[in-house]
Design a protein around this nucleic acid. Structure first.
Lengths: 249, 249
DNA sequence: GCAAGTTTACATTCATGTATGTATGCCTGT
DNA sequence: ACAGGCATACATACATGAATGTAAACTTGC
């Protein structure tokens, strides 16, 4: 009975996306997993593959039904497994959820490192602009999009997973590194003198978070790849020191 | 702290089994646990009072445990009633949830009406600024704060309640009336010519939504009554036409 | 007495965690 | 090199907990 399930799963999950990790390890010496005979070849690579499959399945089902309403049974079935497999790889639903998140984390610090050339450092505001634009790009990737939708819309506080603590940790980390740049911008006179770094920081963070929240609610409404950059560019364009601003000091 | 509360509650309520819950906490015949002295009179006014009590209770428990993990039994219990009362006043959890929301709705249109004097119309950007500031004020009221926290953090999509449809409706309504003002501001030359109304609109909406989302996650972190207005004022200050901007036309 | 309001009882459904079964992969000693 | 033993990677079964909706029994206002 699992044959059809597996086929559907392969179509819906591995269809168009780039799953570089999963198929790599097991194609070497095993035959197709859609074979009608059951063939449990539990090599290390295959175990890792089912782990990934379970996480993929979790993304799909969490997105469809919400975290609290999905049972581990449903996740297992989506992956063509049973609950036993889930409990083998993960302690419980919360553990699985965190593992799912770990696959898409993109700390601001790392984004900044990607856009900053140590030899030729950008102005801090330009670094932030590029980093947030880069974050927007990554957000549109299918997996990142799914998981962030789950985080913002398909999970609730005080559930199996402590979402608020998770979000809080991410946000505080983001705030701190962002603030450093804004303070740098103020000190170097790039930021308009009337705008305190803390306020600029919260403005940028709120705008980004709000945009994510709004767009992910229904991504078909508008193209965030076009709207997002225009919003960010406008913000950065407007908060920097302008000719008519009073000179700092 | 929630864990202990839950545990205590479970102990006191389900301590035995499904038998004789009444004997533990409630008196058998005169069944008004909140008011033990007077026999309950079920007049129309009192029925309405229990309805409100149930909604109050829902706010509290939803906030503590999340919507999906809250049982109607818990809500009833918090209000000093039983599940029967809930099912009398509301069709189900979703119905109750919507009723709870209806008590705090603040459409942007109405907020604008409050700050706009028909005799002496403000500039559109000033209207928007006052309206959003007003919204911030109202958000800090205990009930509004609770319910919006529930909406943004304690409820999930595809649950008993269709949160996304609700948010979508509110957001679209907000976007439309907001866009009118920004277009007005562009036409009257109040808005910087380089900023399209659609972008300004999404910037403001995203910033407000993001601020709500961020602040409500942990309101003790900062004083939104101080930070919020500074963010909004800065935004409006910077997106309006400035002396160094190219004149429109 | 009738109906509104509320409680109690009941049947059903479903998720969870764990315990147990089992087949396979991997390793080790000789 | 290989036979046996142990750990791995699952599947299945079971016991428990808990929520839901509805029906039926009161209880009181009018």
């Amino acid at each position: 009975m699992n044959v059809n399930l597996q086929k559907n799963w392969l179509c819906s999950c591995y269809g168009g996306f780039n799953h570089n990790i999963t198929n790599a390890g097991l194609t070497s010496r095993t035959h197709s997993p859609v074979d009608d005979t059951i063939m449990p070849k539990r090599t290390k690579a295959e175990a890792e593959a089912t782990r990934e499959a379970l996480l993929d399945a979790a993304e799909v089902i969490f997105l469809e039904r919400g975290v609290s309403r999905t049972s581990l049974e449903q996740i297992a079935r989506q992956a063509g497994m049973t609950r036993g497999a889930v409990y083998w790889h993960f302690k419980n639903k919360s553990d699985l959820f965190h593992a799912m998140l770990d696959r898409v984390k993109m700390p601001l610090r790392q984004l900044l490192d990607d856009v900053e050339d140590p030899d030729q450092p950008n102005a801090p505001l330009e670094s932030l602009r590029l980093a947030t634009l880069h974050a927007l790009e990554r957000l549109q990737g299918p997996r990142s999009r799914r998981v962030h939708t789950i985080l913002l819309h398909c999970s609730e506080s005080a559930s199996d997973v402590d979402i608020l603590a998770l979000q809080d940790q991410l946000a505080c980390d983001c705030y701190e590194t962002m603030l450093e740049r804004f303070e740098d911008a103020r000190d170097t006179g790039t930021l308009a003198a009337s705008i305190e770094p803390e306020i600029a920081c919260r403005m940028l963070m709120s705008m980004f978070l709000g945009l994510m929240h709004d767009w992910l609610r229904d991504p078909e409404r508008y193209d965030i790849g076009e709207i997002g950059p225009r919003m960010l560019d406008t913000l950065f364009e407007r908060i920097r020191l302008m000719p008519c601003d009073p000179r700092p000091g």
